[in-house]
């Protein structure tokens, strides 16, 4: 809680990038199969991996 105050840009940086990847992943599989599907899986896997990493990581001591 003693961390410095973040700007709004700081706060939304990660969610924005992950949201962008999600949007790319959702759209790309619509455009085609094979390569497009693979792009979709990769783009959508990133937010899920980040989620797994953040949830499982032990609490950093402030």
């Amino acid at each position: 809680m003693n961390r410095r105050r973040q700007t709004t840009a700081d706060i939304f940086r990660w969610p924005l990038w992950l949201g962008l990847l999600t949007a790319i992943g959702l759209a790309s599989a619509l455009f085609g199969d094979d390569g497009w599907d693979a792009l979709s899986w990769t783009a959508l896997a990133v937010p899920i991996v980040v989620l797994g990493w953040k949830v499982s990581r032990p609490t950093p001591k402030p």
Partner: peptide
């Protein structure tokens, strides 16, 4: 989300 995360790094989970 913004006011709640003002002093927390992204993805902080206070176990």
């Amino acid at each position: 989300y913004a006011p709640f995360m003002r002093r927390l790094a992204f993805g902080t989970v206070r176990h």
